[in-house]
Amino acid sequence: MSNFFTWAFILPLLQATIRMATPYTLAAIGGIYSDKAGVSSIELEGILLMGAFTGFATVYYTNSLWLAVLVAMLSGVLLVGIYAFMVVMLGCKSALIGTAIVLLASGLTNFYYRSIFGVSSEYTSIIPFKNFTVPILGHIPVIGKIFFQQNALVYISFILVFATWYFFEKTALGLECRSVGENPFAADTLGLPVVRLRMINVLITGSIAAIAGAYLSIATSSSFVENMSAEKGYAAFAIIILGRYSPIGAFLGCLLYGFADALQLNLQAIGINVPYQFMLMMPYIFTLIVMFIAGKGEKPEGHSKFFKKGLQIT
């Protein structure tokens, strides 16, 4: 037991926590944009998969990691565009369309992956993002090692957490987006373009969540595996509720997930004798507990309320 509490165990564990938390963070921060505007982010899982595949394929063909991030974002926007159109403009049920989007992403990525790379047991791999130490910050003892000796996408996720918080709390446009989510009809009376704001927010969700997907295939690993997002998108949906729809709250929730994932890896590494299937179950059981505690949370008032010009609630 003694080796649990040594720096040699704890430091890498905390470093891994940040690394493992990042895909959740990016997905949850992305999801917050649509949730705040009153559109459910139940489709996140599909965007993650799409981003993971297009990001990976782009690096494979061009060897450019940053181009891959851009392409992943674009593919996320395209995919979520279908969702946005059908839910925000047509008023379809988000649970159904979200599920369809997840199935579509899963089918499409598997189909194209097999078409391009074939069905072999050997994974094609690329050279992923490397860790680099941030000047000055990276040399702070302990904290530097944990937070600032990571890969570039991790830093982007930090910036996005802060920027998203700033956007929704401190800017007029962010306030407008929130009011669209709280009460679309009142927002309309004030002259806000409700449908347009919702659409844009959902598209932003697609672009950010797709980075989370790309992170999986070109930052923490070097290959694409079918259905590799492993329900992280659904977990992000739960984290947003747990974090009370606030970027900071969601980030803390993601750290919890990252810690659970990192702990699972490290326990396996030091040979704790639990069948690995139970280890793998942990994040899912964790989400169930989170859903039990958070319930439906404090949704924006107008969450999932359909809005259409001229529609009056009687």
Partner: peptide, 15 residues
């Protein structure tokens, strides 16, 4: 608890 059955049922599938 009002928890989304979409998410919980997906998680239970994985478990």
């Amino acid at each position: 608890r009002g928890a989304s059955e979409v998410v919980t049922s997906v998680m239970l599938t994985s478990v």
